[in-house]
Design a protein around this nucleic acid. Structure first.
Length: 577
RNA sequence: GCUGACGUGGCUCAGCUGGUAGAGCAGUUGAUUCGUAAUCAACAGGUCGAGGGUUCGAGUCCCUCCGUCAGCUCCA
């Protein structure tokens, strides 16, 4: 075990002990509280309570103060091993019903940890005394279902964190502030990219600047797909309900779908693009020579998500998937899978994302028989191993029609997001009776891959916004160059400069306001515009421009043509700076 | 959907125990013509999320609904 791992473990033990101290403090303040579970999570811990009193933010301070007292009391933390039956007796006396329920699932021998008057059922380990806990903070209160089951009672959960030293705690809190500053909902408003209106909860509006960004992403996407042998299609947003019965969506996905009636016929708004693509494939007979067919679609889908889960552009009710369906011969599975994996890798690199991979297997509501699922999962394994990718397995987490590989990318402040997914599907071709004619003139069943790389344009834009903290690379920036005349006298020259750049394909604007240069620079900086071109008397006479970069600052003056060549190259290469 | 909190001009926020809305920024107009992150002044802008109710009187109290936020569950 290396030093770093030990540190992580020490931190986990510390946090677990802090969770106990918090539960002890809550019980001192509200003796009637029932305690549920209090595990360590990433960056902290929580403890769940069942209590009629509703915790308020002020209560957190009360609890923290009580925790400080417990720390000052320097209570030794003692491990005890007793029989499950004795534990049941003890917790029954304390009316700790949740502990009793937990005991039902545990061994005949269980361990307890005791500190002063407080005792908790716990595997441990813990620190040796409450005084060892020095740097902690309670963070927020939220509801959480007992055992994560929405049919069980909702408890009150208090989240907190603890660190081995004060510096690490402060650093962590600073990191949270940094994440809040990058929040795409805040930046989306400040940079005028998109908005959500009361009239359309979960249905985002894209503003002109947001559309520039979105179109740049689509343009890049089309370019890459063309290179890799994809064709592009567009299938309707609304299709007859019968189609969704056939695809299995009605059975498995109905709760998330929107329905409508036209001419007394039932229609559904698509929650996924695949059935539309299936119809396109079926339009004509296919020879084995035609395969693989790589059919891509920027498909607008609508899903009825629970209102409480909506979150800016990250979680919406209508979004565009950068979808593709690859119809292929069974013998082409591995090669196609590997190509898709390479494709995802290439795209994420352009944005500077690291990522990791997860493999999800057969879920409860799966269609298709076990043998087919085994075969599909095995095919994904082989492809991952051929690419020498490490992966985690999520049992039972696949789509209802097939297993999947998910790509979780890591942003600039270490958070991970699931974006790309690749799903192998034997079921849908069966349901739609897809065929191709093989070399012996026999009808055969093709196999299909569903995949997305961005995931959805909306979520990807949200992630990019937070990843770059609004400072998009020049190729994505809504405004690439802001021309700033020092005074009105140089407006004409500024316009000339802008025209040259505009004609060169650059997204350029002139700040024509009668404001001081300092203010114009400040505002261009706040808008995260990559380049500011300052023009005044000197520049006009020399036929030059002064270049200021949003991060590098004043770069001095140069010929406009020189600048145009450089920025054009930066954009063409999609440089990430 | 569930638990809790919140909802005041475009944005950020004041408005004590109910007496009939206020600031800064943004905007508009005018003055200023200025060298690398905020010039000055004036003006304009709000049926206080929506609908009911209590009251002589509601932004302030009560109810219902909508939306937002922190989570839970779910997910591109």
């Amino acid at each position: 075990m290396n030093e770093n791992m030990e540190l992580v473990n020490q931190e986990e033990v510390l946090r677990h002990t802090t969770a106990h101290i918090m539960a002890q403090a809550v019980l001192r303040l509200w003796p009637e509280a029932k305690i549920a579970i209090g595990p360590v999570i990433k960056n902290g811990f929580y403890y769940d309570f069942d209590l009629d009193h509703r915790f308020t933010p002020e209560d957190l301070q009360l609890i923290e103060a009580e925790m400080e007292k417990i720390v000052a009391e320097d209570l030794p933390i003692i491990r005890e091993e007793i029989s499950n039956a004795d534990a049941v007796k003890m917790f029954a006396e304390q009316n700790q019903d949740y502990k009793l329920e937990l005991l039902e699932g545990l061994d005949p021998e269980v361990s307890l940890y005791r500190q002063g008057e407080f005792v908790d059922l716990c595997r441990g380990p813990h620190l040796e005394s409450t005084s060892k806990v020095k740097f902690f903070k309670l963070q927020n209160i939220a509801g959480a279902y007992w055992r994560g089951d929405s049919k069980r009672p909702m408890l009150q959960r208090i989240y907190g964190t603890a660190f081995l030293n004060g510096k690490a705690l402060r650093e962590h809190l600073r990191m949270l502030e940094e994440a809040a500053k990058r929040d795409h909902r805040v930046l989306g408003r400040q940079l005028d990219l998109f908005s959500l209106q009361e009239e359309g909860p979960g249905f985002p509006f894209f503003h002109p600047k947001g559309m520039v960004l979105r179109n740049a992403l689509e343009e890049y996407w089309r370019e890459e797909h063309r290179k890799r042998g994809y064709v592009e299609v567009k299938t309707p947003i609304m299709l007859h309900e019968d189609l969704w019965h056939r695809s299995g969506h009605w059975e498995n996905y109905r709760d998330n779908m929107y329905f409508s009636q036209i001419d007394e016929q039932n229609f559904a708004i698509k929650p996924m693009n695949c059935p539309g693509s299936m119809l396109l494939y079926r339009r004509k007979l296919h020879s084995y020579r035609d395969l693989p067919i790589r059919m891509a679609e920027l498909g607008l889908v609508h899903r009825h998500e629970l209102s409480g889960t909506l979150h800016g552009l990250m979680r919406v009710r209508s979004f565009t998937q950068d979808d593709a369906h690859i119809f292929m011969l069974p013998s082409q599975i591995q090669e196609e899978m590997e190509e898709v994996i390479d494709f995802v890798d290439a795209v994420y690199k352009v944005f500077g994302f690291k990522y990791h991979v997860e493999l999800s297997t057969k879920p409860e509501n799966a269609i298709g028989d076990d043998a087919i699922w085994e075969e599909a999962i095995e095919a994904l394994r082989i492809a991952l191993e051929a690419k020498e990718l490490d992966y985690v397995v999520n049992e039972g987490d696949g789509a209802f029609y097939g297993p999947k590989i998910d790509f979780h990318l890591e942003d600039s402040i270490g958070r991970t997001w699931q974006c790309g997914t690749v799903q192998l599907d034997f079921a849908m071709p069966e349901r739609f009776d897809l065929t191709y004619i093989d070399e012996h003139d026999q009808r055969k069943r093709p196999v299909m891959i569903h995949r997305v790389i961005y995931g959805s344009l909306e979520r990807f834009i949200a992630i990019l916004t937070e990843h770059f903290a609004g400072a998009f690379p020049t190729w994505l920036a809504p405004v690439q160059v802001q021309v700033i005349p020092v005074g009105d006298g140089y407006l004409e020259y500024a316009e000339e400069v802008a025209k040259t750049l505009f004609d060169g394909g650059i997204r350029v604007e002139v700040d024509r306001r009668a404001e001081k240069m300092g203010k114009k620079i400040r505002e261009a900086q706040l808008q995260q515009i990559p380049y500011m071109l300052i023009v005044g008397e000197k520049e006009q006479e020399a036929g030059e421009i002064s270049v200021r970069h949003r991060r590098e600052g004043d770069l001095g003056s140069q010929k406009l043509e020189t600048f145009l060549v450089k920025i054009t190259e930066e954009i063409a290469q999609r440089e990430n700076k």
